[in-house]
Design a protein around this nucleic acid. Structure first.
Lengths: 256, 256
DNA sequence: CGACCTTTTGATTGGCGTCAAAATCTGTGG
DNA sequence: CCACAGATTTTGACGCCAATCAAAAGGTCG
């Protein structure tokens, strides 16, 4: 439940490394492949962060939006009572910190799960693009729609599903997203992905204590539905896992 | 919890009334006041619906987006097990059905709470505007940001807060939104708003049974924190209500 | 007025949280 | 490369919040 504040984690380890123009790389996540030529001309920097370090905090006015290149990021909110709700996980290929309110204040915090490499873009540039590059704007729009649909699913899960349904859904969703958008993660022979989450992080995402998450996960392991160890998750029986929840592989908000 | 399917409610009572050009009215919610001249030229129709009637269903491909003029709308999702999660309530002045995925399929259902009047816009037009009216596009963007922030709050509530915290938050949020954006709703002398929700609907929004909602609401009444009857809610002690939850009147996602 | 919806109250159950402690894993420095 | 500290996982006992079951009392609308 993460009552305690991040201790060592809270030290801001981020530092923008020297300006580097990475040509042709995944700059704007889902958008770049359409506008690579333009993208590479936008100002951006590579950013390396250690595990468990803060990217930005709720209430701040970030100067950058980020494209995740390596590692997992969590977007979260802290409660006054010291609890933490993880809103979603951003995987390699995802774009984050895109939305602030009109004052430029952001409504959630972000921190790395494992070691990560991000690509930062000046926020002002993004705003310009949205306002002036009419051809890009619909792309953002459809990206929003996908995020919104995910939130709808999460809300339904938290409000109406029990512990194993929620966990099964999270595992399937992350598995699917990681497999589709991060080639380095998926291993077809074991049907496994790189999976850096702790059980406490899973709990904070699905509204359960790490202890209860543990019981459910162990049940899934004993039932030979999943297996996980050393930061890898493999799904042994997709059907049984999907059957536990409302998960429909087909209708998942498609990654790019 | 709404296990049973909407019975009488499910009959589609909607019907588009004759083409009418309402000049200068609230056409596009938060956006129109900037672009009224343009807005009034966009194709749109008035739509009157009875209480508890379906506007559109998840999985359909709506042809229209809607601006709510009167009445409350609920956006919701049904579970395979017959439960219902209300994702959010749309009040007069709100815009809904704006986002579909790339196929045009919408990820939630919508139905009226009480009698309602909506203004419909051809979806294709909206898409055009977003793509081509670069001056409007940022408005949509900032509207999205506001919705997203609300969802972040809801997720945190469902995942980390107990029954009274969630209910207190919902009441305050709806009170605030209704007061600010619907002049006909608020009555300053009693500090009350028009409040058409049943306790079951409240429960489906905050992930509780109507029975438990009832116990909490009664507790709030007996404590003289709120009072409600005949579809009006009045807040007798804002401070105590706000104290129950994380609600910060100041930092609420500002309505237009 | 009668059917149905909504609110209310009580009794009981159960899923998940809390508390506690041991076992295992991880990575960091000597 | 080992040792140790801290993080993470695991297990068990126990308690509580909210669900479930049941039923009565209002309300509302045709």
């Amino acid at each position: 439940m993460a009552r305690r504040e991040l201790t060592s984690h809270c030290r801001e380890k981020s530092s923008h490394c020297k300006d580097c123009t990475v040509r042709g790389s995944t700059l704007l996540g889902r958008i770049d492949h359409i506008h690579i030529e333009r993208a590479t001309r936008w100002r951006h920097r590579l950013l390396k962060l250690n595990a468990k370090s803060t990217l930005y905090l709720k209430g701040s006015k970030p100067d950058f939006a980020y494209s995740v290149k390596n590692g997992w990021i969590m977007l979260y909110r802290n409660t006054q009572k010291g609890k933490r709700q993880i809103l979603r996980f951003a995987l390699p290929g995802d774009l984050i910190a895109l939305k602030t309110n009109d004052d430029g204040v952001i409504s959630h915090s972000a921190a790395t799960i494992d070691n990560a490499v991000l690509c930062s873009f000046e926020y002002a540039t993004i705003k310009d693009i949205i306002a002036n590059e009419s051809s890009v704007s619909p792309q953002f729009f459809s990206m929003e729609a996908r995020d919104m649909e995910l939130y709808h699913q999460y809300l339904t899960g938290l409000g109406q599903q029990d512990a194993s349904e929620r966990i099964a859904f999270l595992l399937l969703e992350l598995f699917q997203r990681s497999r589709l958008q991060d080639a380095t993660s998926y291993d077809a022979t074991t049907n496994s992905i790189h999976f850096p989450l702790t059980q406490e992080e899973i709990g904070d995402a699905v509204g359960l204590t790490s202890i209860h998450v543990n019981r459910i996960i162990n049940h899934l392991k004993k039932s030979k539905i999943i297996s996980c160890a050393q930061k890898r998750l493999s799904i042994l029986n997709v059907d049984k896992l999907a059957e536990l929840t409302e998960f429909d592989l087909q209708q998942m908000p498609q990654a790019r």
